[in-house]
Write a protein that binds this DNA or RNA. Sequence first.
DNA 1: GAGGGTATGGACGAACGCGACGTGCGCCTG
DNA 2: CAGGCGCACGTCGCGTTCGTCCATACCCTC
Lengths: 162, 162
Amino acid sequence: MDERDVRLLKAIADLGTGSPEKLHEATDIPVSTIHYRLNNLKDDGVIENDLYDIDLEAFGLGVTVVVEVLADYSGSYEEVGNKLLEIEGVTQLYFTMGETDFIVVAHLADSDRVERLISDFEATPEVERTNSTFVISAMRDSHRALQSYTLETLLDELGIED
Amino acid sequence: MDERDVRLLKAIADLGTGSPEKLHEATDIPVSTIHYRLNNLKDDGVIENDLYDIDLEAFGLGVTVVVEVLADYSGSYEEVGNKLLEIEGVTQLYFTMGETDFIVVAHLADSDRVERLISDFEATPEVERTNSTFVISAMRDSHRALQSYTLETLLDELGIED
DNA sequence: GAGGGTATGGACGAACGCGACGTGCGCCTG
DNA sequence: CAGGCGCACGTCGCGTTCGTCCATACCCTC
């Protein structure tokens, strides 16, 4: 995996499309080369399916951390949240009820990077305290939430008659 | 949104493809209707992009919960984890270091369903205690982890020369 | 039974997937 | 250093698939 692969994958993530033509426009990589690269990435298991889900482990972001963030959001929580969103590696950001204010899931290259992540958090003035938990194994880390449901349950819970 | 829409979206999630032909095989919905339906879902904002990311709020799974699970995994943690994975609504499951054993992110239809989720957890013999946190606002809930990085950082952290 | 929304089938042009082939570059070997 | 080999990249072309348009059929509702 080299720079071009990374640019390609990032373009897919940013644009939200797998269209070779669009990716060409964004990356300047010739369309045929995009095919060539994507095929290799599929063979290598970095790309998992037609939806371009990425195996973060294979890609090189194998470290997952869950961070609880306590913050003083005397302004609005959105304001603080947006600052946290700008920190690199933050994949999920939840504003929550209860003891902690934000819960963050981050995907990082290695455990050394966790340090930087935390110091990025602490460098945000509104952040008062953080509490990080290392993930040993991500047994499921999917955005395809519907997978975990049966069709019946979905119809049921959404109140749809057959 | 009706049964067919749900079947379509679930097929996309299960198969990991957006190919109309494959979806037709899986759902028995005519190809032209698949086009018709998917277009409507895009217009309605349920499907967000070419990667078929789903707006869970628009879909009807607008409630997010983060649950810490304490378990007795005298067997293997995989064994317990696999049981937890079977519980409907579990989108992410992390086996972690530290005080808690598992951290779960779940997407549910409404807050009533949280009750059932928790009782599903508690019904698992190995589970000793759970601690759930409601999400007020999911400020980012993306699987496209690369979005949060700049190209430079990615290259840097993966140790790729330009 | 008239009319709006919804669903389906067919047909056509456009886009895509993929294999075949050509080129350039580095590296080994004689 | 010449020649040969292999890999990565790019170009071309063809068969397939996709997406859209239009015409028709369905089905409630009034």
